[in-house]
Amino acid sequence: MTAATIPTSPRRRPAIATIAAAGLGCAWLAARTSIAPDIPFPTATLVVGFVVLAVAGLVLAVPVEAAPAHHLPAAVVLAAGVGAFAAARALGDGHAPSGLTLGAVALNTLAAVSEEIWFRRVVYGWLAPAGPVVATLGAAALFAAVHVPRYGTWVLPVDLAAGVLLGWQRRTTGSWKVPAVTHAVADLLVLL
C-alpha cells in the first residue's frame, strides 16, 4: 500500500476531508473563470492555484484500484487519444483566440496536467469503487461541468466526450499520466 492510497475495508470510513477537498477543487476550477478578471495578478494567482491543485491531487489518498489483468500498451492508448484530438482539430476548425507562444503553451500544459491529476486521479479514484463506468462517466461529467461557466452549456457534449476518452485512457493504463499527456497535446492543438 502506497502512502497516497488507502485500502477499502468494510471497517474503514470514507475520508470525509478528502471528498470535501475533491468538491472544493471542482468548485475552484469552475469559479476561476469568473474570478480571474477581478483579482490582482490574475495569471500568477491562477498559476499558484493550479500548482496547489496538482500537489493536492498527488498527495490526497485515493482507494486502491485493482489493475486490469489485461491492459493495452501506453503508447497505443496515447496514440488513440492524441489521434482523436488531432482529427477533431483538423475537422472542427476551432482554435483559441491567442497564438502559439511559449507562455501560452506553458500555462495550458500546467492547466492540463493539474486537471488530469484532479479528475483522473482523485475524482476517478474515489468513484472507482462503484465501477469503471461510473468512475469514467462521473469524472467526465464533472470535467465538462467546470468549463460551463466560461464557455457556456453548448460545450458540454464536446468536453463530456473528451472526458470519456480521457477516462478510457485512465482505465486502460491504470494511471493519470497518459490522459495528462493527451490533454496537454489537445490544448496545444487548440493553439495551432
Binding site: R32, T33, A36, P42, T43, L46, F50, F85, A86, A88, R89, G92, G94, H95, A96, A104, L107, N108, L110, A111, A112, E115, H147, R150, Y151, V155, V158, D159, A162, H183, A186, D187, L189, V190
Partner: peptide, 8 residues
C-alpha cells in the same frame, strides 16, 4: 475546438 479548456 478539440477541447474547450485552457488556463484562463
Amino acid at each position: 475546438r478539440p477541447l474547450f479548456d485552457g488556463f484562463a
